[in-house]
């Protein structure tokens, strides 16, 4: 069999930097005119003017969001305590940065504690990891769609947000076998509750998987034990180098638990005295499910062939 020549990894890295250069070329075209966050113009606005300013007069946009038009959360001081001191400091010609408060979980909970999805926030993994609401949620505008996907990026906004912190998990979605998150067909939140924890969920290990893969939920007459107990005995749901999200490809994933009867799977008869003298066929070893296709359980065959 002819083996193709591989390009070096360096080639790929070079391509990456070509992209960077491509971006640098754009620098010469001048500064962008996108709307910037408008900090209080303390150097050019007289005190008299400041006295009449409301929050929105200065903060017309926050992170590119037009706060005047889409002031989704209404009153600024509900979340930003110290706004009055902030303004007073500005009047005194100070920066005003020291008095204004940015909302922590507690401020959000003042209003949202009755939301059912937050009923167990105290026990959630994100809470224990000291995550705060604003790390994931945009507060200054309604939760509306993001930009168009110019560069072929079909991932949904939620999942893109998750991948900022969970980079190790995100990397698995680049593997040749993965759940189609990057393709936009599903989201991290399709399986994970960002406000919960496995300890306070009433779903079993497999329930998340079987919520979509109902065809294998059974009940089966002949069950396959690891399928009943934990899908992740064999699969890595985020991504794998092996086909069908197998953490370890066939036949290794099967051979951990199963011995193979030589007489049925290789060359030679099933003479019991012949143990150790026969060879298992490579054709068998390449893919156990070529015969045992009902690997998730069967309604009729105890050895899961159909």
């Amino acid at each position: 069999m002819k083996i193709m020549q591989k390009p070096h990894l360096l080639n790929s890295i070079i391509i990456s930097f070509i992209l960077l250069i491509f971006c640098e070329m754009g620098f010469a075209q001048g500064e962008a005119t996108v709307q910037k966050d408008t900090n209080p113009p303390k150097n050019i606005i007289a005190k008299k003017q400041l006295l009449d300013l409301t929050c929105l007069d200065c903060h017309q946009s926050v992170k590119g969001i037009n706060t005047r038009a889409a002031n989704y959360h209404g009153d600024c001081e509900t979340c930003h305590t110290g706004a009055e001191e902030h303004r007073d400091e500005l009047l005194k010609g100070q920066s005003g940065n020291g008095s204004i408060a940015f909302p922590q979980v507690k401020e959000c909970m003042n209003c949202h504690k009755v939301d059912k999805i937050l009923a167990n926030w105290e026990f959630s993994e994100h809470s224990k990891g000291q995550a705060i609401c604003t790390e994931c949620h945009t507060l200054h505008a309604a939760p509306v769609p993001g930009k168009s996907h110019l560069a072929g990026n079909k991932i949904d906004n939620k999942s893109a947000n998750c991948s900022k912190c969970h980079q190790d998990v995100a990397s698995r979605f680049n593997m040749s076998s993965h759940h189609p998150v990057n393709e936009g067909a599903m989201s991290c939140a399709s399986c994970h509750d960002p406000h919960g924890s496995p300890r306070i969920t009433l779903k079993g290990k497999n329930d998340q998987c079987l919520g979509c893969h109902q065809a294998i939920r059974g009940p089966m007459v002949f069950e396959h034990a690891p399928v009943v107990e934990d899908c992740m005995s064999c699969h890595d749901p985020h991504g794998a180098s092996s086909r069908r999200l197998l953490s370890v490809s066939q036949p290794m994933v099967c051979l951990q638990c199963h011995s193979i009867v030589q007489g049925k799977h290789g060359y030679g008869s099933s003479e019991p005295s012949a143990v150790g003298t026969r060879t298992i066929s490579g054709a068998v070893l390449r893919n156990c499910t070529n015969c045992h296709s009902a690997i998730h359980g069967s309604h009729q065959d105890p050895v899961l062939r159909y």
Partner: peptide
Amino acid sequence: NHSVTAGAEWEGDKLILSGNYVLNMS
């Protein structure tokens, strides 16, 4: 398994350019 990703976005006066590259090798 190795994965390399590189992405960039540039927003000019009018033109918006973006690029993304992913290599995955096993």
